[in-house]
């Protein structure tokens, strides 16, 4: 049975609106206007036990709203969701004891207490048996290498240190489902790498399923085999990460090392870069094999690679498309549908 089952999930916010200026402010005293913002519209997907799913979208796409509904913070306006067999917004003890939500910009530890005391509080809150708690704490502290930080008050930690402590605190009860909202936001590259290595290791050890949002594609590439892409509250793509480029990117890049640094390359594709004998050429995706074969036949080649464009470029292409419907159609056509 899937850990997360979402059907036609929808969330509409009613937000007050008024024009700028004093007149509008006075008018709003006796006549308030509202408009409806559809943050999430008709989302449906499943996450199987142990899966790590990247949840991608630009700011305002509905990612965080979805995670908040799945972790029980928000009630949906329509649709249904079950996480570990529970309706999240009922916030039953059994559900809350088996899931976690980590928000990168939110401090859930006790600000004024040493980190170990915050962990101790989580032990009591989640009713973790003492022996299990100590084993989990020691293992997680060891994995994230924060042994020398745990006696410091949370307020004295740097952002990266605090994030690691937050993650340990959020995992002490060994959740089976983890919702991670920008867990590496604001961290330096080394810290990002350490946290993503840890999350991958935790997933392998515990078999927990993970749903992750991140604007750092390195997080997604390192952790996720499957991605769900949403825009304006709707799913644009749900499938293998490797399949996203196939659906969206119209081109591939061929990087070739030629013996003749001045060889003529007209008619192969658009030359993106040329550094001596090393040339990068952009070619239509469907022509990639044929162009590669031609290069090998017609030149003395010491090395050749064919690659998808960087994931950042693929994602940017999806979201920067002026016509979201067209983008949706583009990614949906022949959708791999691995999410069922």
């Amino acid at each position: 049975m899937a850990d997360v089952v979402v059907d036609d999930l929808e969330r509409v916010f009613r937000v007050p609106v008024r024009e700028a200026g004093l007149g509008a402010a006075v008018r709003s005293l006796y006549r308030r206007e509202h408009r409806e913002v559809r943050a999430v519209e008709g989302l449906s997907f499943r996450i199987e036990p142990g899966e790590v799913v990247g949840f991608l979208g630009p700011n305002g796409a509905g990612k965080t709203t979805t995670l908040k509904m799945l972790s029980g913070l928000l009630h949906p306006s329509a649709g249904s969701a079950r996480v570990l067999g529970h309706e999240p917004w009922r916030r039953e003890r059994e559900f809350l004891s088996r899931m976690t939500l980590v928000m990168g910009n939110r401090n859930q530890l006790q600000w004024d207490l040493p980190v170990v005391d915050s962990f101790e509080m989580n032990r009591a809150i989640f009713r973790i048996p003492r022996a299990h708690f100590e084993a989990a704490r020691d293992e997680l502290v060891d994995l994230l290498e924060i042994g020398d930080l745990v006696t410091k008050p949370v307020r004295n930690l740097s952002l990266g240190e605090r994030m690691k402590a937050e993650i340990v605190g959020a995992l002490l009860h060994r959740p089976q489902v983890m919702f991670l909202d920008e867990p590496t936001i604001g961290l330096d590259v080394t810290m990002q790498k350490r946290i993503r290595t840890f999350l991958g290791e935790y997933n392998r050890r515990s078999g927990a399923s993970v749903m992750l949002t991140s604007h750092y594609m390195a997080d997604v590439l390192a952790l996720c085999e499957r991605v769900i892409v949403i825009h304006h509250g709707r799913i644009l793509y749900d499938g293998a990460l490797s399949g996203l480029a196939d659906r969206v990117a119209a081109s591939k890049t061929i990087t070739v090392r030629l013996a003749d640094a001045h060889a003529a390359l007209d008619g192969y594709g658009r030359v993106l870069a040329r550094d001596g004998g090393r040339v990068t050429i952009e070619v239509p995706r469907t022509d990639a094999s044929r162009v590669a074969a031609r290069l090998l036949n017609e030149h003395e080649v010491s090395d050749l690679t064919i690659e998808d464009p960087p994931l950042e470029d693929v994602i940017e292409r999806v979201f920067s498309d002026g016509d979201a419907a067209a983008a949706s159609a583009a990614v949906r056509s022949g959708s791999p549908g691995s999410a069922g």
Binding site: G72, L101, R106, I125, R127
Partner: peptide
């Protein structure tokens, strides 16, 4: 400030 969110994630 969204502090209530952290409390809602606890089984208490």
């Amino acid at each position: 400030e969204g502090r209530l969110s952290g409390m809602l994630l606890r089984p208490v």
